[in-house]
Amino acid sequence: MKKLIKNLAAVAIVAFATFSFTTIVKEKKEIKIDESKVVWKGYKVTGSHEGTIALESGSLSFEGDKLVGGEFVIDMTTINSTDLQGEYKDKLDGHLKSDDFFGVTKHPKASLVFTKVKASGKNAYEVTGDLTIKGKTHPVSFVISIYGNKATTSLKVDRTKYDVRYGSTSFFDGLKDKAIYDEFDLVADLQF
């Protein structure tokens, strides 16, 4: 019996020592900006508009093959529409960059920093993050899927939380068919 206790104690000491000096390595994988794409889509009573916006930088953090974090910087000066051409495209792009919408002269960058990541399936994670637009930060939640060196996600953003009020029925009455819905979509296909 004493020998069994000594053996168990020895095993416990070895296990404790092993786990005490073994660290889980966090690996940060940079996003390949030129191979990744972020698409936005905004909705109004009479239809919708869509376009792209460029990432300035981004990374996903892993422990082994498990996603544990991420952070992104978005170049707001690159926001543009892809569903219009010519004069109408130029007008919409200019309006989106103006103070009525994203005020890119004063706020050229937006960011997203993951604050909580929870596995929700084989390749899926529920993420909560801090999204900053126009200097205002609010939490957002979304699902991200990871397949090899590719990540995909889509999220809804309530623009009014970031002081983007133009055409919002939450702030202006009598807009009728000029109303623009408060939420817009972001869809990201990321390569790393």
Rank of each mutant, 00 (worst) to 15 (best):
V25Y: 11
E35V: 03
F21I: 00
D185S: 14
L155C: 08
E27T: 13
V157T: 07
L60Q: 05
D83E: 01
F114D: 01
T128C: 10
K26I: 07
G70M: 05
G148R: 04
L60T: 09
Y166F: 14
A119N: 08
A188N: 09
L186N: 06
F184P: 03
T46S: 14
A17I: 12
T115I: 11
D99I: 10
L8G: 02
E87G: 06
D189E: 10
H95M: 07
K176H: 12
K41V: 12
L186Q: 06
K161N: 00
L4R: 02
D75V: 04
D100H: 12
D185A: 07
D34G: 10
T169P: 09
G70R: 13
E126K: 13
V104I: 08
K89G: 04
L96C: 15
S59R: 04
F114S: 02
I133W: 06
D158G: 01
G86N: 03
F142V: 02
V68P: 11
K97Y: 12
K6S: 03
V127R: 10
K122A: 07
V39S: 05
D130S: 10
F102I: 04
V25A: 06
Q191D: 02
T105P: 09
T46E: 01
L4I: 14
V140M: 02
K106Y: 10
A12V: 15
E183C: 02
A179S: 09
